[in-house]
């Protein structure tokens, strides 16, 4: 089984990289991009039967820094 973890900076935490991407899109003529937030996707290849609670634990302990980041888990 696989799990996909999406880690994003929390709302309210300034994302300088997203801002730089937004500016670059504007420079390429893509008007109307009002905001860009950049995050990361982590794909986990897991033993069958691994619970979502276990993946949550992985996020809390390592995959996300919950001081500044939020995470979303999708089990496939």
């Amino acid at each position: 089984m696989k799990a996909k973890v999406t880690v994003m900076l929390k709302q309210g935490v300034l994302d300088p990289q997203g801002e730089a991407v937004r500016h670059a899109l504007g420079a390429l003529g893509f008007d109307g991009v009002q905001g860009v937030r950049q995050g990361k996707v982590i794909e986990l290849d897991l033993a069958e039967g691994t619970t979502e609670a276990r993946v949550t634990e992985m996020c809390e302990k390592l995959l996300a820094n919950t001081v500044i980041e939020s995470y979303r888990i999708e089990i496939a």
Partner: peptide, 9 residues
Amino acid sequence: GALMRNANL
């Protein structure tokens, strides 16, 4: 707290 990417990148 946490240390993030420099604001000016």
